[in-house]
Computed example of a mutant assay.
Amino acid sequence: MTEPHINDGTDDSVGGGPAADPRGWALPRAVSVSDLGPLAEPISEHNGQAIAVKPLTNHPGWLAKLYRPDQHPEDAGRLDLLISAPGTLPEADRALLYAGTCWPAARIHEPGNPAVGCVIPMAPEQYRCELRRGGFSDRRFVEIDWLAKSDESIRGVGLPPPGFAGRLSACRQLTELAAILESLGLVYSDWSFSNAFWSPDQRSVYLIDVDGCQPKKMPDIHQPNWADPLTPPGTDADEYTDRYRLGLLVAKCMTGRRDAHAFHTVAASPWQNQPAVSEVLLDMLLATDRERRPSAAQLNQALNSGPYLRTTPRPTRTALPPLPPQPIPQSPGGADKPVKEPEPTPPKAPQPGPHTGWILVLVIAVILLFVIASNH
Rank of each mutant, 00 (worst) to 15 (best):
P60N: 08
S153Q: 15
I367Q: 12
D21A: 11
P18W: 02
V339G: 04
A105Q: 13
F197C: 06
L131W: 00
L82T: 10
A319S: 14
V205A: 01
T265Y: 02
T88I: 00
A262D: 12
R94M: 08
N375L: 11
F193V: 00
T175D: 04
P321W: 01
A296M: 11
A267C: 09
D211A: 11
P342I: 08
R310L: 15
D336N: 07
K348V: 10
W146H: 08
R245W: 05
F197L: 15
P104D: 08
Q214G: 03
L360D: 10
M254P: 02
E341F: 11
D138E: 14
V363H: 05
R132C: 09
K252Y: 01
R317A: 05
P162Y: 06
E182T: 06
G134F: 11
P42V: 06
Q330H: 10
T345P: 02
G87C: 03
T241C: 12
S153T: 10
I328M: 06
G9P: 13
K217H: 11
L360P: 03
I108M: 03
R243F: 03
P200L: 00
T265A: 15
Q173I: 00
G100K: 07
N273Q: 15
R317Q: 12
P294Y: 04
L362E: 10
Y308D: 13
R133W: 07
A30W: 04
D35H: 11
R293P: 12
L97Y: 07
A319V: 03
Y67K: 10
V33H: 01
R317S: 03
S84M: 02
N7L: 13
P73L: 10
Y206E: 03
P313L: 07
E176W: 00
N225A: 14
P338F: 02
Q330D: 04
P233W: 07
R314A: 15
P219F: 04
F193C: 01
A373Q: 13
S150R: 13
D21P: 08
G334Y: 03
G117R: 11
P332A: 02
I367F: 14
V116Y: 08
S194Q: 14
N113M: 08
S150V: 02
E125M: 02
E130V: 01
P60K: 09
T57Y: 02
G234D: 09
T88Y: 02
A64L: 14
P161F: 01
S278E: 03
A106V: 11
L309I: 14
G256I: 03
D238Q: 11
R68W: 05
W358S: 12
F136R: 15
G24F: 03
T318P: 00
P347C: 09
G166P: 05
A296E: 10
A262V: 05
Q223I: 14
L299T: 07
P315Y: 10
D238L: 09
G247N: 08
S150A: 14
L27Q: 12
A170I: 03
N273F: 03
G87F: 01
H109C: 15
V205Q: 00
G306W: 04
N300Q: 15
F263P: 05
L82G: 05
T311P: 05
Y98P: 01
R258N: 09
S34M: 08
G24K: 05
L285Y: 07
G334A: 07
C213P: 11
P327H: 06
W146K: 09
E3L: 12
R68N: 14
P321T: 06
T255R: 12
D11A: 13
A237C: 09
L66C: 06
L81C: 03
W191K: 00
G17M: 12
G212T: 14
A85R: 06
P28L: 04
L249F: 06
A30C: 15
